[in-house]
Write a protein that binds this DNA or RNA. Structure first.
Length: 506
RNA sequence: GGUGGGUUCGUAUAACGGCUAGUACUCAAGAUUUUCAUUCUUGCAAUAGGAGUUCGAUUCUCCUACCCACUACCA
């Protein structure tokens, strides 16, 4: 049995979407579980849609997630240009493989599985709009190919002439008539499709001497000895064509098995997750922050404060389940537990609340020292220069209250700097000058313990007094325990803050 | 329109054709906490509809409805 080899083959037409990351992840998990290889291939066969920086973004995203390809891209993120023992099928960027596709397209023409088409974009556009005006849809297939300009309808001499003179012809697949393609999907089971409903897809374009997705994909999967193709559900409709291509090439014996993953859907309403949804509902749809060439910025999980482990974990659970009640998985545990037959068929709606929950869980699992190290640079940005050990002890106190490291400052800024203002609502509710004066007096006279005794002795409402003091210390009536705050800022600073509030509020 | 795929609490999902349809997130209530948060307990909440097969259907079959994808010289 041949070694498991799977690939993730994104197109650098923009930033990698979280659904794309999930596809990469499932491929990676499948490969590693079977002791196989995970290959990263860049499918840049559409020169018009190339977006600068997209490829680097994809590589960096996978690296952030801890997904390292065995082939195609080295761990340092470089696309391998030339073949080597480690990367026997290099290059892995389809634009650099340009020269190998044409012969395969020609092979199909020679064997009668494809033909040359000379219809210009304008001509096709015209028949398309004509059909539309009659309420029909134009399809380039067995019904229409006979009346269009191609090597099936033109005399051979004319074909030769056009081939030589024109540079805008294409090679189209000759979709057979009256056949039912029987297919198997690792997730969906058996599927059959009548070829009469399919069209003659363009396989190769003379204009840029590049194949389209379908040809490049099949040829490269074959050449790279891919054993399983795990991709998004949007590819399911082209599976019959892909089956037929393997057959036309005579490669059906080594044809990979296919698995079509359910789509990731938007949290509300219907439809697949899009960039807009994230902006509208306040969560990232991209792993990393992305700034488009036009200067438009989209948020990323990394910049929003998600841990890569949490991101990978939540992605893994979107469409797959372990069959047990375990929800927290490390990448290594996922490799162990993953299985394609536990992948669901229905699209999964993304739940931002659950995503946050995952991050909270991972934040709690991290050590205080680890979190302090992550927080330190953020503190520095705030102009706070605190000792790591101090920060660490603060983290220990507050980590249960946070979802992200970024939350730490909002939760505990007053342990580093005195509050400059007080929450008005809390002032209205808790600030009573007489009570406050008494509390201050008692604190000046002794310590917190006797304050508590004092409050009890005078039968003052504990909550009221405490919140009044908390207000002075932290600027709000909610938050950490008074004695914790005082322990961190010290008695002198505490008293200073009390006096400051008294002075400010009267 | 055509083709294909899909449908269990609001969401993610579990359930050899067989327990009261389970779990997590969210939400609500209670307990704990000097406040808030945490934590703990409890609760709300689902098999799209209709036929059929069967002793028995969330599970198998068919029909209907709805949703999604695809329908480019894009991937």
């Amino acid at each position: 049995m041949s070694k498991t080899r799977v690939r993730f083959a994104p197109s650098p037409t923009g930033p990698l979407h979280m659904g794309g990351v999930r596809t990469a992840l499932y491929n990676y998990l499948f490969a590693k579980q079977h002791g196989g290889d995970f290959i990263l291939r860049i499918e840049d066969t559409d020169s018009n849609r190339f977006v600068p920086g997209a490829e680097e973004y994809i590589i960096e995203s996978l690296r952030w997630c801890g997904i390292f390809p065995d082939e195609g891209v080295t761990p340092d993120g470089k696309v391998v240009e030339t073949a080597s023992p480690e990367h026997p099928h290099a290059p892995y960027r389809q634009s650099q493989r340009r020269s190998i596709y044409r012969q395969y397209a020609e092979q199909l023409v020679a064997s009668g599985h494809a033909y040359y088409a000379f219809d210009s974009a304008e001509e096709l556009e015209k028949v398309r709009t004509e059909a539309e005006s009659k309420g029909q849809t134009f399809i380039y297939n067995h019904l229409t190919r006979g009346s269009l300009r191609n090597s099936l309808t033109l005399p051979p001499a004319e074909v030769e002439r056009l081939l030589a003179e024109r540079t805008d012809w294409t090679v189209r697949f000759l979709m057979p008539e009256g056949r039912v393609v029987e297919m198997d999907d690792l997730i969906r089971g058996h599927i059959s499709v009548d070829t009469a409903t399919l069209d003659d897809k363009v396989l190769w374009k003379r204009a840029d001497e590049l194949p389209t997705y379908h040809l490049a994909n099949i040829v490269d999967d074959h050449l790279m000895e891919i054993t399983e193709v795990i991709r998004g559900e949007e590819w399911l409709p082209s599976l019959p064509l892909h089956y037929l291509l393997y057959e036309a090439f005579g490669w059906q014996d080594s044809q990979p098995r296919f698995a079509h993953l359910p789509l990731l859907l938007k949290p509300v309403g219907n439809g697949k997750l899009s960039k807009r949804d994230g902006d509208k509902l306040g969560f990232p749809v991209f792993p990393l922050r992305w700034t488009s060439p036009a200067g438009e910025t989209s948020r990323g999980y990394r910049e929003d404060g998600y841990f890569p482990e949490a991101f990978v974990n939540l992605l893994a659970m979107l469409g797959w389940n372990p069959g047990t009640e375990q929800e927290i998985f490390s990448l290594a545990e996922l490799v162990e537990a993953f299985s394609l037959d536990k992948v669901g068929k229905a699209g999964a709606k993304f739940n931002p609340d659950k995503a946050k929950w995952f991050n909270r869980e991972y934040l709690r699992m991290k050590s205080d020292a680890e979190l302090a190290a992550l927080w330190l640079p953020l503190l520095k940005e705030k102009g706070v220069d605190a000792a790591p050990t101090f920060v660490e002890s603060v983290v220990a106190l507050i980590k249960e209250r946070a979802t992200f490291v970024q939350d730490f400052w909002d939760i505990a800024s007053y342990l580093f700097v005195a509050p400059t203002e007080y929450v008005q609502k809390d002032v209205d509710k808790f600030y009573k000058p007489e009570v406050f004066a008494m509390a201050l007096e008692a604190m000046e006279a002794s310590d917190a313990d006797t304050l508590e005794a004092y409050v009890r002795e005078h039968e003052m409402p504990m909550g009221k007094v405490m919140n009044c003091i908390r207000l002075a210390l932290s600027g709000a009536a909610s938050g950490l325990a008074i004695h914790d705050i005082m322990r961190f800022i010290g008695r002198d600073e505490s008293l200073a803050r009390l006096r400051r509030m008294q002075q400010k509020l009267g």
